[in-house]
Amino acid sequence: MTTLHAEWTKVRTVPGTVWLLVGVVALTVAPGALAAGAMPSGGDPAKSALTGIVVGQAIVVILGVATVSGEYGTGMIRTTFTALPHRLEVLAAKALVVTGLVLAAGAVAVAGSVAAGEALLPGGLPFTGPVVRAAAGSVLYLGLIAVLSVGVAVLVRDAAAAVGLVLGLLYLTPIVATLVADPTWHDRLRTLSPMTAGLAIQSTVDVAAEPVAPWSGLGVLALWAAAALVTGAAALRLRDA
């Protein structure tokens, strides 16, 4: 509990946090609104309205990475571990605090995107089961991206390298997939890559066309996040701070 409180105090008192959270909301809602306004006929309304998640997640990555790398950059991490020698507890507290903040900001961002979609989409955004799934899933998606970023940051330590690694992991696979002509490999790549798999949750119209089922896709991302966190935790225990 003390650990959690300590981490919360750190996050709360860093001036950048609020702006980053505002950034998550703004960069999610604005592109989503633009995409919703430009949706082609026959498009997936939920997917269009929630396009901004692809942009907003970049700010989530900064938040996740900064909580860890910030401490390594300044040497604060040694003070932290002197005060709280249970390293895994510290890591868990960091992951919890960041994920909690991101889930809160994500909920606001998704609510804003849904509202913008309702206003701007030609047929509005009908409040059906799949749409609720897409909205709730998008919030969870952002939370998992935060966990993934924390895990990678613990492994890599350096902020620039960690951000580059996470953004590369997220953004490169969909680009490469456009050139993979074999449908089996194309789907395999999209099933294994954290971003395309995780965003399958946003599909509401032609769910069967996605390479992976909505919740399984989010599960793939969860596995990535868990793997990053576990590897990070192992490294944290074995290495000097």
Binding site: V65, V163, Y171
Partner: peptide
């Protein structure tokens, strides 16, 4: 670092 890498990657690659 984190903000810079994100800004540039989001601007160039995204």
């Amino acid at each position: 670092s984190a903000g810079t890498v994100t800004t540039v990657v989001v601007g160039v690659v995204l």
